[in-house]
Design a protein around this nucleic acid. Sequence first.
DNA 1: GGTTTATATCGATATATATTGATACTCTAT
DNA 2: ATAGAGTATCAATATATATCGATATAAACC
Lengths: 135, 135
Amino acid sequence: MPEWVCGGSKINDDAVCSLGRLIGDQQKAEKRIRELSSLVVTIEGEDPDGTVEVLKAVADPCRLRIIKLLKEGELCVCEIMAALDRRQSSTSHHLSVLKEAGLVRERKDGKWSYYRIADGAVMEMLKQAEVLKKK
Amino acid sequence: MPEWVCGGSKINDDAVCSLGRLIGDQQKAEKRIRELSSLVVTIEGEDPDGTVEVLKAVADPCRLRIIKLLKEGELCVCEIMAALDRRQSSTSHHLSVLKEAGLVRERKDGKWSYYRIADGAVMEMLKQAEVLKKK
DNA sequence: GGTTTATATCGATATATATTGATACTCTAT
DNA sequence: ATAGAGTATCAATATATATCGATATAAACC
């Protein structure tokens, strides 16, 4: 028979209950969940959504290709557009996402805009992603 | 007056034309675009979409939090669910995305499933993303 | 000035993906 | 076997985002 009543409405309560059965001790289960919750508080303090913005920026087929193109050096919008065979508005949109996320920098020269990779960490990040790719 | 006719329908042709005006030499512009196109061919050979899958897996608020939780060590689904206050089906979905992408590994023990980070490269990748975060 | 050109932005649509509730699967214990 | 529990999967919906065409902005040239 069930040792402890689990009538809570919150998701947490269900989990405490499950964990109680797993560990065989509800007290310890509650303590464990409290620890995890405070760990989440710590994580929240580290601005995870800022990190998500950076990751989302490269986590797109088109934008990843742009970054890989820029490895060679600065390119103007029309070059990127041609290389990827994407329309101008689409290319421009992707570049602005990358710029917003701080992955690339823009340099204006007259009518032309040139883009380049903002920081070495960008390629380092990709290197790690590629390590994970095929495992 | 325009030195070269640009009536092509492909995106590439427009770009060659623009670039020709920028460089002041259409021949060189065509060569440049050809070089970039072959660079793209090289990039395609590197399985960029595999890399995108890895990046997409972490580029989500919920999944990033899961990874950060797992930094402490192995957790079972009910613990993750409680910590993030997400429903079971949602939590399970995110874990399967992370597993598919090779970022976490699963260990089954009876009814329980435990997840852990698959490779040190995961945290290294995040570290680089965090470097880029606030610039 | 007006025109052309390079890029950015906008509104509409299409596509992808997160979430939810329900159901299925699987293990354990009775 | 049957029931209960932990997890996975499914179908429907909601939300986010990529793409497209059109337009706006801004610079260069006549």
